[in-house]
Design a protein around this nucleic acid. Structure first.
Length: 687
DNA sequence: GAGTTTGAAACT
DNA sequence: CAGTTTCAAACTC
């Protein structure tokens, strides 16, 4: 709030600037260095816009921004070509500044922001300002409703503004190194925003489809969004932008089998007419099914899902809805949570993996370390899920390492899907609409294998499910968020000494164990394979993964480890086989608890990344005194159900969700940001 | 497989 | 916020 006093004292930026600009000195400086001007405002803005984006900007909460973003993106798609063309044309005529000015003039947008127009690098001032403030335009340009992203009705203007931004970027290519440097920043920012858009949109369709569309649909929406982005990229079609189009992804997606979704797709195809091709996967074609896109989006967060243009937005939502309904019968596996540095929703993993049925013996027996069974029984040699971003995408690439990686990833996803369908709950009185229900808590619908009674956690009761979820979320916004968060990031790390321990993750809320000494799966920390943290209120903590008091954790110590080992061995520890052993004993019966979580997906400790497999991982680690961790990149990133190379030393005890619990201010900021904006879980609730 | 234990979730 | 109850998974026999 401005006080009269303040007003008096502080001259308006405009007047001040005006005076300054009128001075001979300023003019001289201006003529000498364009950098000066850039520095004063644009540069800072460029940086600040990125560095100080509000949490919501960086990781926008879908509930808040989804509408804006989704529409924005779509429209941008429509206008970019036109505007870009105009700008490019003008760029051939004269210098960048003039071009920028023209562009600005055409748009008419900049006229309303004289402050953005500097004497010399008008283009620079304009573009950078627009660019840098793209996320804040709604606020920054109060005088104009053109970019008020908050208003659905202003999407056109908003898109227009963005287009201009993009166009100007082209114009600015001839600018100084300094400016280019800034451009890089901007590019990153834009990239980031694209990603952000993806996230935001996640909730858009759900909101539109409310009751009809489930998570799958939501995920599909992400893919949809990606499609739009891709289009944009193509339109801009400059080498630089092409980078975001990952042919490998395309290939990957196109090759993802329909696992058991054939029926769903068939149905969809029957209904979609022209779009069938788009939804029906072509083994090597370019089209991608919604589901695969969804999955892919989970796995390859950084890459837009390239889909057939026919597969699209308008009807897609509808189709997706239909498809989702079909799929929901099998199960809705919400493992798509991802983002730069953010993995899937780990809440779902444990469940997924836990509920996994023992692998087909024949498959298992035929498997070798590092191999992954596919739904059809084939075995694929393991390779990193972090396949190179760009891959050929042609049939000829089938034998390339990249292709193999893609195949591997694909099959991993298949496994996830499969395993998800095997998870079951046994609720008797909660109707599976409370967090007591693992399925519900994991964001999954109950399925046939569940032994629940009076279950309402089914697609046919979607509305109820949504409402219930909404209610729970209203009570506790983090109710469906991952319970275990990672603390490996130095900046975000908050557990201090604990952090030095192998436990690179901690239970977000902490446990409250009194009798189990945090050595049994009653303890959520233990179950997740993470050490207890100061936030735990447990008594007599002996968590082998890390005690509350910071005293050590597994791998190295004795008591905890012993207890854990003992605990693990009570039943089947003797049957537990490490990867190494697994190969030798793959025909041996797999321990129940192990088989559920690791036999298939987690043959290796590394594989048991994420919270889900942590438990298993822990067992393995305990047995092997696994050296402390270095979470495999794969795990740290996106792919989840990971099967890592088996012959590698089990050096990673666990992989935690990419969330950070922090106590420090910085950490808290980050955490807040993450928790707030990234629905760790696809929300049932429409925004 | 039934019964018990446990601690999170839900409720008051 | 603390105490109590409910609940379902984990565990034991």
């Amino acid at each position: 709030m401005d006080t009269p006093h303040k007003t008096q004292i502080t001259p308006t930026p405009t007047s001040s600037l005006s005076k300054f600009e009128d001075s001979p000195v300023f003019k001289y400086i201006d003529s000498l260095s364009p950098i000066e001007q850039a520095k004063s405002s644009q540069t800072d803005n460029a940086f600040n816009s990125l560095a100080f984006l509000s949490p919501s900007s960086l990781f926008p909460s879908p509930q808040i921004n989804c509408h804006r973003e989704s529409r924005f993106s779509v429209k941008r798609h429509h206008f970019s070509a036109d505007l870009s063309t105009r700008v490019l044309q003008s760029s051939n005529e004269s210098n960048a500044s003039q071009e920028a000015s023209k562009a600005a003039g055409q748009s008419g947008l900049y006229d309303e922001h004289p402050g953005c127009l500097s004497n010399d690098g008008s283009s620079k001032g304009i573009s950078s300002d627009l660019f840098d403030k793209q996320s804040d335009l709604a606020v920054e340009l109060p005088g104009t409703s053109k970019y008020d992203c908050r208003s659905p009705d202003d999407n056109l203007e908003a898109c227009d503004a963005l287009l201009k931004k993009t166009s100007l970027e082209v114009v600015e290519q001839e600018r100084s190194p300094f400016q280019r440097s800034r451009d890089e920043w901007k590019e990153r920012q834009r990239s980031f925003e694209n990603e952000r858009d993806l996230r935001k949109i996640r909730r858009i369709k759900p909101s539109e489809e409310a009751a009809g569309c489930g998570w799958v649909a939501v995920v599909s929406d992400v893919a949809d969004m990606l499609t739009v982005n891709t289009s944009i990229i193509h339109e801009n079609s400059d080498g630089q932008d092409q980078r975001t189009v990952d042919s490998g992804t395309t290939s990957f997606i196109s090759n993802i089998p329909e696992f058991s979704l054939d029926n769903a797709n068939n149905l969809e195809n029957a209904e979609s007419g022209d779009h069938q091709g788009s939804c029906k996967q072509n083994e090597l074609g370019d089209s991608v099914t919604d589901q695969t896109s969804c999955i892919l989006s989970t796995c390859l967060p950084d890459k837009p899902v390239v889909t057939d243009s026919s597969l699209k937005k308008d009807d897609k939502g509808e189709k997706c809805s239909q498809l989702s309904r079909q799929r929901s019968i099998r199960r809705r596996c919400l493992v798509f949570e991802k983002s730069p540095g953010f993995g899937l929703h780990l809440n779902s993993l444990p469940n997924i993996l836990k509920g996994q049925n023992p692998p087909n013996k024949s498959i298992l027996s035929s498997m070798k370390m590092g191999e992954v069974p596919s739904d059809n029984g084939t075995v694929v040699i393991e390779s990193s899920c972090e396949a190179p971003a760009s891959v050929g995408g042609t049939d000829a690439d089938h034998n390339t390492p990249e292709k193999k990686s893609l195949i591997l990833c694909r099959q991993k996803f298949e496994l996830v899907e499969e395993s998800a369908s095997c998870k079951r709950c046994n609720c008797k009185r909660s109707k599976c609409l409370k967090l007591y229900c693992d399925c519900f808590a994991a964001g999954l619908y109950c399925i046939e294998p569940c032994s629940c009674l009076d279950c309402f956690n089914k697609p046919i009761h979607e509305k109820m499910v949504l409402e219930t979820r909404k209610q729970i979320e209203s009570r506790n916004p983090q109710a469906f968020a991952p319970k275990v968060i990672r603390s490996t990031d130095s900046v975000l790390d908050t557990w201090g000494e604990n952090n030095k321990t192998p436990a690179s993750a901690r239970h977000k809320r902490g446990c409250n164990c009194r009798k189990s000494s945090c050595l049994k799966k009653y303890c959520e920390c233990f179950q997740a394979g993470v050490g207890c943290s100061p936030s735990c209120r447990c008594e007599g903590c002996k968590n082998s993964f890390g005690r509350k008091d910071g005293c050590d954790e597994s791998g190295s110590d004795g008591e905890g480890l012993e207890a854990c080992e003992k605990n693990a061995s009570d039943k089947n520890s003797h049957d537990i086989v490490t990867h190494k052993n697994a190969e030798e004993h793959r025909d041996l019966p797999v321990p129940s608890n192990i088989s559920r979580s690791s036999s298939q997906l987690c043959n290796t400790p590394e594989r048991c990344s994420s919270e889900s497999s942590l438990g298993q991982s822990k067992f393995n680690s305990n047995l092997q005194a696994i050296p402390e961790d270095e979470t495999p990149k794969v795990l740290k990133h996106k792919c989840l159900p990971l099967i890592l190379k088996t012959n590698s030393p089990p050096n990673s005890k666990r992989v935690s969700p990419p969330h950070h619990e922090c106590s420090s201010s910085t950490a808290q900021r980050s955490r807040k940001l993450i928790l707030k904006s990234i629905p760790s879980f696809p929300s049932f609730c429409p925004p």
